[in-house]
Write a protein that binds this DNA or RNA. Structure first.
Lengths: 221, 221
DNA sequence: CTACGTGTGGCACCCCGGTACTAGGGCGAG
DNA sequence: CTCGCCCTAGTACCGGGGTGCCACACGTAG
């Protein structure tokens, strides 16, 4: 059972959400709020699984409320719902720590799917927004770090060893790396061992640290 | 009717996609390819609405193939399907111009929805990936720099756990940590275990990654 | 041709890392 | 005072990590 807090300044809109959600099983509306202040307070009180958050509200808006809710470190996740897909809203909401961003004209099943995804820790973005988001994201990324390749510590690594090292630095176990790269675990171990020996790492923990130090991996994600 | 090109080096996988998609209306599989080179060629020939693209393939991989397909300026959109949600794959695929990124264990209806969305120009990302993507995106954006200590993930850590975590992130073993902090190894293990549980790390490698991620330790410093 | 580097794979062995449980002492809040 | 949290410590267990060593295929530099 997923508990939900509805935040919207328009009573009619809140009613609409209720209509849609109360007919569904597995979700239960535990409260409502009509502005940001109230949203923060009620979230702290009720600690719902998911907060359905409107952005435009009198007083404290949804962005600021989202920021405070996520900053508090509670388990409630925020799913932002707006009428307009203005980019600035999307970015601001994401930076505020929102777990999702849907448009209010979403179909009930989309809304439900979104709520469920957010409740289990995943994230959702409305398909229409995803495209622009990805585009902006691709531009924001400067691209794989090439300066890393020139670091003396990595000089002696073969292409394969570098690749394996990158994956190690994402936190996967040898078995997982083997599956990911379609190799046997033995082979992975060999590569990892050789890579560690070359860069002077005693174990994979130090390998990861070195990988971060030389900028092999980007400290993001 | 949405035309589809299936690209995967494993015949069984291609067969699986056929099974799923041929039972659906509105989509039609117009061809297959088993590596990147062939994918580029067949896309040029057939100009399908959507290319279902595997990443890891012998010869030219799916990323490079995606890059060439989108660079060619055709109308075909690329939907990347991979078994593992390795971050670097996602980023690389996005930069290569992919319109979507799904996991192969997606349910048939999710796959269908993804294909339809991509076909009409929208984009899709698997929910499990969206979360990390948003997180990475929020970090890539300029914004109020929230530095280490206030990160929600660290909020629940006690002083001692934080201290131990910092030392873990320098690459010391439990025994070494015990010596430097004048504790028994058992105690160190307890702290490390608790810290990992709280921040959601499976092992100390992931703990180190998270430590770097939130800025607990200084990269390159 | 041979030799080497590289990527791949396998196997035996040991030990560290991580979990689960328990438990005592200190310390502040109710 | 009692409760709960934190720090401390221990034992037992086991799975994965890491090492060493071996083997084969392939391409290329010598």
């Amino acid at each position: 059972m997923t508990s939900i807090l509805i935040v919207d300044d328009q009573p009619l809109q809140r009613m609409g959400f209720r209509m849609v959600l109360e007919s569904e099983t597995g979700v239960s509306i535990v409260g409502e709020a009509e502005n940001g202040i109230e949203a923060v307070r009620r979230t702290a009180e009720l600690s719902p699984d998911v907060v359905l958050m409107d952005i435009r509200m009198p007083g404290m808006d949804g962005i600021e409320a989202t920021r405070r809710i996520t900053a508090s470190g509670g388990r409630s996740r925020v799913l932002v719902l707006t009428t307009f897909d203005l980019d600035e809203y999307v970015y601001a909401a994401l930076q505020a720590g929102a777990s999702g961003f849907l448009l209010k004209d979403a179909r009930p099943d989309e809304l439900l799917a979104g709520i469920r995804a957010v409740a289990v820790g995943d994230a959702v973005v409305a398909p229409a927004l995803t495209r622009r988001l990805l585009h902006a994201f691709a531009k924001a990324l400067p691209g794989p770090d090439r300066r890393a390749a020139e670091d003396p510590r990595l000089r002696t690594l073969t292409e394969r060893e570098l690749e394996v090292l990158r994956v190690v630095a994402t936190g996967l176990t040898n078995t997982e790396i083997a599956e990911t790269l379609h190799l046997s675990e033995s082979t992975v171990k060999t590569h990892v061992s050789r890579a560690m020996a070359k860069i002077g790492a005693r174990d994979r923990v130090q390998a990861v640290i070195i990988a971060y130090d030389v900028g092999l991996v980007d400290p993001r994600g």
